[in-house]
Design a protein around this nucleic acid. Structure first.
Lengths: 113, 113
DNA sequence: ATACAATATATCGTATAACAAAGTATTATA
DNA sequence: TATAATACTTTGTTATACGATATATTGTAT
């Protein structure tokens, strides 16, 4: 990643919920999709993503199911819930407030006090 | 504050350096200035700010001095160094990359995959 | 005059969260 | 047939913001 990983804190739930709001996905797919969508700028590692998914599920913001398949490979699909979409909206507003605040601070003209 | 405090992580050094790039200030003044400049949206508490100032000073990004005064009150003024200004620029670029990445993800149109 | 709020700095313990690393197992490829 | 990629899990580490508490000075209200 091209930035301090600390910056990511507080945004991961929003990112995962957003991706799942567009389509159901399994964990590994989310990792790949995030990298691909952001030209490798954003990345969530296994040790970060899977605990997040378990946590979101425990809060009923997403649900999981196993796609019926002929292979032995375990794939756990996740689907965003109505509650999840609501929380996603809240988090988007929160992010907007925060990033606009930073912009105001950082983009501020030198003479303003 | 009107947002998840986790969002602040990774941005505090940048914020403090930015404020000090505009004028020398003492700790308490920085706290007040930040609140005032952002209409109470942003806030750094003592337990956050003072350790940050000590840390930035240990890294030579800021220096401190005591303004000569008739009062007994201890006020430690901080001044950004050339190194501090350089690091501030780096952090601003980092923030730009990060926030643009989030925008791309969150503002993305639903049909894009 | 006297209590209380605001100013000013400091530090310790706590909580959260992202990551690295290591582990297990399946499927595809060289 | 070994290796890489896929797929999920868990444990320990690290960074960092905060709450709480402490100390002391200065200003204000009763």
């Amino acid at each position: 990643m091209k930035f301090n990983k600390e910056l990511l804190k507080g945004t991961t739930d929003m990112i995962v919920l957003k991706l799942l709001s567009q389509q159901d996905m399994y964990g590994y797919e989310i990792m790949k999709k995030l990298k691909q969508k952001t030209d490798n700028i954003f990345e969530l590692r296994e040790g970060t993503l899977y605990p997040i998914l378990h946590n979101l599920e425990s809060k009923k913001l997403i649900t999981s199911y196993c796609q019926p398949t002929e292979s032995q490979r375990k794939k756990i699909y996740y689907k965003i819930t109505d509650k999840g979409r609501k929380i996603l909206q809240d988090k988007e507003v929160e992010w907007k407030n925060f990033s606009e605040g930073i912009s105001k601070l950082m983009g501020g003209i030198a003479y303003e006090n």
